[in-house]
Each structure stands twice: as C-alpha cells, then as structure tokens.
C-alpha cells in the first residue's frame, strides 16, 4: 500500500508531499500522522507542500483536520511552501484555512516549531487580531 513517508527529527515530524494526492492517500497520511504524534509524543508537525500543484477542498480539509488532530494531541502544525498560484486559487475557492499556521519554507517552519516547543515567539504566520 502506497504511503507518504514521515520523517522524524527530534520531537518534530516532517512530511514532504510531492505526488498528486489521491483521496485515500491523503486520508492514510492523516491516520499515520495521528498515530506517530501520539506514539512519539511529537511536539510539532511540518508539512511541506511546495511540490503540490493544486490544493482542492478535499486536500484543504485534510490539512485542516491534521492540524486540528495534532492540536488535540498537544502538537503544533505548520504548513510550508504553498505556491502563489495555489494560494490564490484556494482563496478564490473559498478556503482560507484559518486554523492553520503557515511559513514560507522548511527552514522558517522548523524555526517556528522549535520556538513553539520552547515557548518562544513564533516566526510563522497566523491569523491574529491586533
């Protein structure tokens, strides 16, 4: 059965999505991540989607679900590398993924997760009110 590999770095989990996701593959990733977060007591999950050419409402919902599940399991999620065309399309589609932290690239995403784990100020971007 095809699976998306999950990499572990310390207490962080790292996923790079490069293939065109079919629905079951996305759901399997959601399952696998939930299990690994609990099993390894991970503090953060980084999902690199720079290789994704589209994010439709199904994938968008899966990303939001992963972030919500992780939060319940006491881990932060950051989605990094969304392409401009994908972002514009997603907004037009009507999904602004309000509950998801984002960062420009893997480095900034990792930095955010490390700081979040030690309680420092984040470098990721979130919806915040003034």
């Amino acid at each position: 059965m095809e699976r998306i590999p999950i990499l572990r770095i310390g207490t962080l989990l790292l996923v790079t999505i490069q293939v065109d996701l079919y629905d079951d593959l996305a759901l399997r990733l959601q399952d696998d991540l939930s299990n690994r977060i609990a099993e390894l007591e991970a503090t953060g999950v980084l999902i690199d989607i720079s290789g994704l050419e589209i994010v439709d409402s199904f994938i968008g919902r899966t990303l939001a679900n992963i972030a919500a599940i992780a939060r319940v399991l006491d881990a932060e999620t950051v989605v990094v590398g969304m392409q401009p065309a994908v972002a514009i399309t997603l907004v037009e589609l009507g999904m602004s993924l309000p509950g998801i932290r984002t960062a420009l690239n893997v480095d900034l995403g990792m930095e955010y997760l490390r700081q979040a784990a030690t309680g420092e100020n984040g470098v990721g971007t979130d919806h915040y009110a003034e």
């Binding site: 589209i54 994010v55 199904f58 399309t89 997603l90 589609l93």
Partner: peptide, 17 residues
C-alpha cells in the same frame, strides 16, 4: 498562465469528485 492552469485544474478536481 500558471494561475489559470491552477484554477482550472482545481475546478476540474472538485467537479470530477
């Protein structure tokens, strides 16, 4: 254009699903 491509493929994905 890349943006048009992305919009159209996304709509196709939604409607095919």
């Amino acid at each position: 254009t890349l943006i048009d491509q992305t919009k159209i493929v996304t709509a196709a994905s939604e409607l095919a699903r």
